[in-house]
Design a protein around this nucleic acid. Structure first.
Lengths: 227, 227
DNA sequence: TGAATAGTGTCTTTCAGACAATATGCC
DNA sequence: GGCATATTGTCTGAAAGACACTATTCA
């Protein structure tokens, strides 16, 4: 069969959703945003935020819409992860979901802290509750992808505010990879990339030696875009 | 809005297809399989093989089905590439397509050479005709992904028959990356991976020094699976 | 001055890349 | 012997990893 028939309505159509894996590093923990479902199926289970793709919007637009609905943040890193389409993944009807992951920095995060009503929460990736659908699998997949990309690109920088210290950056790597790195080697490597530069500022009001604040040279975007 | 409403039929549903980017290296060229459309839209244009996802099959199953319908081959490398969902990508109706790429080795290929009727052909990736829909973009994306993966994993080995020479392997890399590699460095690197071993056989009936045939130690699968 | 974190340099090992001569089989 | 391709090793430079002490601020 080679598209002899183009009648799209000849077949039953699946529903298509986007699901968002929204990561952040907060309170020295690797977090993902979850929402509590208040309707069946999986009523009262925690799940990834998401929703139906509207007929006139692209997948990226749907993802951005969902992201902004859940968090209010806009200028974040967003990447299509994978499309999950097992016919049994939703017990009711056929739903194919396009998963996206987003990286939010801890600074922007505070803005929306007010929205933290009881049905939305940040959950540690290392201690997740039981989740609806195949969302556990999806998150595991997203974690793998994020780690892989953080080894070969600079996506990880998107988890930081505009100005940051090298210790903060190292801290993010250590939390996400769940292991320690040597401080000298880490700094040597990061600085050798030539992507960040010291500002004239230092951290204030700390009861120890203040750290230099760095900022991006704004061309990180390109470097992430490998694949 | 947090999934207040689960009525999937409340929204118009898009159609969902799979499109297959089937790569092979053949006659010293990097090829992709194309089919000629015989119905609108884009009638008489070349396009990627593909078709609607049936309501009861998974995406992977749909991809395998399409692959086997087009090529007759089964045991090949298959990987989900990306999902393209621009609302305007199909001029008629909303179609979201999940693209998969497959790697076929030149040996299996001959089995199906007979199917090469006029509406199916192997096209050089370097000289493609004008294509239907956004299929050019999809192929470019697939080429990027394949190269990226061939740098960091051993997917490329899937383009080879069970027994092969190191020159054949190098040839495949040179064709896909469209550049030459140093023979000694290439062999050193490949052999240092410890993934292949010499068989006792050599190439026959060549009018020059025969080459050693190698085979896999069968655990390449795992190594590819770094997402 | 003590507590807490910031900041810095050397040595070793490993890997990538440049580079050319000999070996084998067929005609 | 001539042709065509196969096979093999060394050197150099770059980057990764192991490793420990001094600097700065505040309380």
């Amino acid at each position: 069969m080679k598209k002899k028939d183009y009648n799209a309505d000849k077949y039953d159509k699946p529903s298509v959703t986007v699901d968002m894996i929204i990561f952040t590093v907060k309170d020295d923990d690797f977090n993902v945003l979850l929402v509590k479902r208040n309707i069946p199926p999986f009523e009262n289970y925690w799940a990834l935020p998401g929703g139906f793709v509207r007929i006139e919007e692209s997948l990226d637009e749907a993802a951005k819409r969902e992201l902004s609905e859940e968090t209010g943040v806009k200028d974040v890193y967003l990447e299509q992860l994978y499309t999950f389409g097992n016919p049994k993944r939703d017990p009711r009807t056929r739903v194919i979901t396009v998963a996206y992951f987003a990286l939010i920095n801890s600074k922007d995060l505070e803005l929306k802290a007010s929205t933290d009503v009881s049905d939305v929460k940040w959950s540690s990736v290392y201690k997740m509750p039981e989740l609806a659908f195949d969302h556990k699998t999806i998150i595991e997949y997203a974690v793998k992808r994020l780690r892989w990309k953080m080894e070969y690109t600079t996506v990880g920088f998107k988890l930081l505010p505009k100005k940051f210290t090298l210790s903060q950056l190292q801290n993010i790597y250590e939390i996400i990879f769940n292991k320690k790195f040597d401080k000298r080697n880490f700094r040597k490597k990061i600085l050798s990339l030539g992507l960040i530069e010291p500002t004239k500022e230092k951290t204030m009001n700390v009861s120890h030696r203040p750290a230099e604040l760095y900022s991006f040279k704004r061309k990180i975007g390109e470097i992430i875009e490998i694949l």
